Computed example of a mutant assay.
Amino acid sequence: MLLAVDVGNSNISVGVFRFTDARMPVIVCHFKFGTHNYTPDELCATIDGFLRRFDAMQLHAAVVSSVVPQMTAAVCAAAESLCGTKPFVISSGIRTGFGIHVKNPEQLGTDIVSNVAAALTLTAAPLVVLDMGTATTISVVDTEKTILGAIIIPGLQLSLRTLCDTAAQLGEIPLAEKPELIGRDTRTAISSGVLNGNALMIDGFIRNIREALGTKESGTSLSLFATGGSYPAVEPLLRNRFTYSDTLTLFGEAILFAQNNKIF
């Protein structure tokens, strides 16, 4: 079994995978918990506690993706304790199976690399991956299976929290589900601004990306994938339809592990 750990700014996601004879990862269980300044022992105990709930089988290897550098060493140490071997860390220079055409490839987020690896395993390019976490990231891959770059926007919850923390009279505002366009009180007005605003922004970016890639004129299909905890809140408001998976990043990590290591 492979242990996959994705360290994000808000959450640490963990998954356990087995591999088919065709080297395709299949997720056995997954869970997440808040990102804090854990020690290796604390991380090991937390992950082991969750794994015992799922009755996970013996772990043979681990893969780690982290966008929080100060947490990477602790997570790797915990993964090594759990698996008995040093984890494979997603980083620049590994085999990916696709091109990366950005100014500083070594600065490209490992979550973006993992998401694209997952999406390209599931469908053909060109494609877009929408990741709605602490930040909202839209990654673009052209017909040649090359990452052209990304669009990064403050995340939905981050934007809402910043507004509520900054405006003196707001306090905490719970979002309304599927809000009307024109809010009739503070809660519904903010809900419309945050949810409808994000949906309109995403649809607008997808329209402009299609124009930039020339897919509309050529008739080429643009595949759309989504992940991240905030996506379900905006999904009903989107005109574009995305294939959603809350374990897309973990699946991509497992794919990259298989491309760079011998499968046990």
Rank of each mutant, 00 (worst) to 15 (best):
D48G: 10
D48E: 11
G49R: 13
G49Q: 12
F50Y: 14
R52I: 04
R53P: 00
F54S: 05
D55P: 06
A56V: 15
A56L: 04
M57I: 14
L59I: 03
A61I: 07
A62Y: 03
A62D: 03
A62W: 06
A62P: 01
V63H: 05
S65N: 12
S66H: 07
V67P: 06
Q70G: 09
Q70Y: 15
M71R: 15
T72G: 07
T72W: 13
A74V: 00
A74H: 12
A74S: 14
V75P: 12
V75K: 14
C76P: 08
C76R: 04
A77I: 09
A78H: 05
E80R: 15
S81Q: 14
S81V: 01
L82S: 03
L82V: 04
C83F: 07
G84I: 00
T85V: 10
T85Y: 04
T85R: 15
K86T: 07
F88D: 00
V89S: 09
V89F: 10
S91Q: 14
G93Q: 05
G93P: 02
G93N: 02
I94N: 01
R95G: 03
T96M: 12
G97D: 05
F98N: 08
F98L: 11
F98V: 13
I100L: 03
I100G: 03
H101L: 06
H101F: 06
V102P: 05
V102Q: 08
K103I: 06
N104S: 15
N104P: 00
P105G: 05
P105I: 00
P105M: 04
E106D: 14
E106A: 15
Q107C: 10
Q107T: 08
L108A: 00
G109I: 06
T110R: 14
T110C: 13
T110L: 08
D111N: 07
D111M: 06
V113Q: 06
S114E: 02
S114T: 10
